[in-house]
Write a protein that binds this DNA or RNA. Structure first.
Lengths: 157, 157
DNA sequence: CTCAGTGCAAAGGATTTGCATGCCG
DNA sequence: CGGCATGCAAATCCTTTGCACTGAG
């Protein structure tokens, strides 16, 4: 995002590079990169949209619910995973932006599905300009922005 | 928002105008504009930021929890109230945009507080241009957008 | 061996709902 | 009077946590 990118951030990684990077990041907090944590990261990296816990579990049936929740929590703390909360029902999880790429979300207000989309550079540029202004105007220290587009997805129309 | 504004939308209403408008909108679904519903609307209209249920209850101690939840739900269905879900913990509620004005939110990731802010016209213009593009590119029917700025509020710094 | 990780089952917490009562139209 | 509204208490449901067990280093 704006500001200094995290050390080791990458845009296009191979699977191996991704896992090495995650492994490093976990070790900084004395966390092991276990089989199930690796499985979660693999599932998320193979998806083109944020997934719910049930979706993650059914993508890899070897995972157990409570550990998946626990590991998602730790991966989130370690800056590997990003948690998205939209409505009620399940939260969505995706890889952190610096392990994937900067993007925004299309949120279906009918079924809750979330898709990724990348905003045009012109918009992002204008956005960043505005963010700088706001930092000056308000006492707010902005660390991230989120541009969600709400509507009805193709399936629900 | 973009598209046709709802009939009866206003930017600057007196309290009376607001309540009349809400009353009309409720009657269209055979809902009465009762004392407690009016109280909720009054609390929200007097706030310059979205409020949680505990905040609403403490702003008007005559309200009871379950009825407040139920009424907020009905007001939301009737298009009078907008529900904002950010993290876990409590949801936030505000008057619908066409009863207040188009704005976005500064979300404190530390204490959960949400403040309103109005984006510059240039940004909104660019944003709308992008939205139109996206509607064409994806099968997504966009009904609203949400630009949240995440960071740390003045109190938490 | 040690200590983090796992998984089951139980607990938590915001929100919803069943139901008997109250009250507006 | 009839039906929506209310409020208490109980139920829901996603998520977290306690605890005993397992496994990697």
């Amino acid at each position: 995002m704006h500001g200094t990118p995290r050390l080791g951030a990458v845009q296009n990684t191979t699977d191996d590079q991704l896992h090495d990077l995650v492994s490093d990041r976990l070790q900084q907090t004395d966390l092991r990169y276990t089989t199930s944590r690796r499985a979660i990261v693999a599932v998320l990296s193979q998806s083109d949209r944020p997934l719910t816990l049930p979706e993650i579990l059914s993508a890899d049936t070897s995972l157990s619910q409570s550990s998946a929740y626990r590991n998602l929590g730790e991966l989130t703390t370690a800056g590997v995973v990003h948690r998205i909360v939209v409505g009620d029902s399940f939260a969505h999880y995706e890889l952190a932006e610096d392990l994937s790429s900067h993007h925004h979300h299309l949120v279906c207000t009918n079924c809750g599905r979330i898709d990724d989309y990348t905003a045009p550079a012109t918009l992002e540029r204008e956005l960043h300009r505005t963010l700088d202004d706001i930092v000056e105007q308000t006492g707010f220290a902005i660390t991230a922005h989120r541009l969600d587009l709400l509507g009805t997805c193709r399936n629900c129309r």
